[in-house]
Simulated scan of single mutants.
Amino acid sequence: MNKIAFTLFLLVLIPVSSMAQDWAQLNEFREANKRLEQEMNVENRIVFFGNSITIGWLHTQPSFFRDKPYINRGIGGQTTPQMLVRFRQDVIDLNPSVVLILAGTNDIAGNTGPMTLEETLANLKSMTELAQSNNIAVILCSVLPASDYPWKPGLRPDIKIPKLNAMIKEYADKQGAIYLDYYSAMVNGKQGLDPDLAEDGVHPTKKGYEIMAPLAEKAIEKALDKSP
């Protein structure tokens, strides 16, 4: 390998290696979490934990989070195994009263490799058990509808998402967690989202989040009533 080829190899390799070293993206909120250490006694802190749909909420409808003890810990593209790795840092260590977990669609999309619905549910179970063992009330959110993924078509989320949601609801009922059903309030006749709720069929618009907001607040109120 000549010098030029070797240099190009390194330029490609180094960023990939850096990403691999922080596979779960623990660094994303590390500094923000440190700043919260001075406010650890905030009453009824709520963590919104998820992927791009969660962090997109903060950017698209920031008023929902303003002047409330709501902490957004969504990272775009993440799957449940990545979220499980960062669950202690980005949820438990923040000492919340409640966590809302919204995840699973990227598992179905295969963002970190092929996964079964059972494997996704197992990760959600682990997060739930970790939270409950630390006296954090859990809200398990349904996966939002998607008739297909524009970036990876043909994976049939229109079939898999309803199946996963049924599994999540059954587990939540057995485990004493709250099941938050966004799906039923947003789904159209094609098991997806209308363009006014999600222009790309996956990520909610402001109107989409406006449907989600009162459902989330109702679930939070219920969770705080049950919180230890």
Results as ranks from 00 to 15, higher is better:
residue 3 K to Q: 14
residue 3 K to H: 13
residue 5 A to D: 11
residue 7 T to K: 13
residue 10 L to Q: 06
residue 15 P to F: 06
residue 21 Q to A: 13
residue 21 Q to M: 10
residue 26 L to M: 15
residue 29 F to L: 04
residue 33 N to P: 10
residue 35 R to N: 11
residue 35 R to Q: 14
residue 38 Q to E: 11
residue 39 E to H: 13
residue 44 N to V: 08
residue 48 F to E: 01
residue 52 S to F: 02
residue 55 I to K: 11
residue 56 G to C: 08
residue 56 G to D: 00
residue 62 P to G: 09
residue 66 R to C: 09
residue 71 I to Y: 02
residue 72 N to W: 04
residue 74 G to R: 05
residue 74 G to V: 00
residue 75 I to N: 01
residue 86 R to G: 01
residue 87 F to S: 00
residue 93 D to R: 12
residue 94 L to T: 01
residue 95 N to W: 05
residue 96 P to M: 05
residue 100 L to C: 11
residue 101 I to W: 06
residue 102 L to W: 10
residue 107 D to A: 00
residue 109 A to R: 07
residue 116 T to L: 11
residue 119 E to N: 06
residue 119 E to W: 04
residue 120 T to N: 06
residue 124 L to N: 01
residue 124 L to S: 01
residue 126 S to R: 13
residue 127 M to C: 10
residue 129 E to N: 06
residue 129 E to L: 09
residue 131 A to Y: 04
residue 132 Q to F: 02
residue 137 A to N: 03
residue 137 A to C: 09
residue 144 L to C: 05
residue 147 S to N: 12
residue 147 S to L: 07
residue 153 P to A: 08
residue 154 G to N: 04
residue 154 G to V: 09
residue 156 R to Q: 13
residue 161 I to F: 12
residue 162 P to M: 07
residue 164 L to D: 13
residue 169 K to L: 11
residue 169 K to E: 15
residue 170 E to I: 08
residue 171 Y to A: 06
residue 173 D to G: 03
residue 173 D to P: 04
residue 175 Q to E: 15
residue 176 G to T: 07
residue 178 I to D: 11
residue 180 L to H: 03
residue 181 D to I: 01
residue 181 D to V: 00
residue 182 Y to S: 03
residue 182 Y to H: 08
residue 184 S to G: 11
residue 185 A to Y: 09
residue 190 K to R: 14
residue 192 G to P: 02
residue 194 D to C: 09
residue 195 P to E: 01
residue 195 P to T: 08
residue 198 A to W: 00
residue 199 E to K: 14
residue 199 E to V: 13
residue 203 H to C: 12
residue 208 G to N: 04
residue 212 M to R: 02
residue 214 P to D: 08
residue 218 K to H: 10
residue 218 K to I: 12
residue 221 E to A: 12
residue 225 D to G: 14
residue 228 P to V: 00
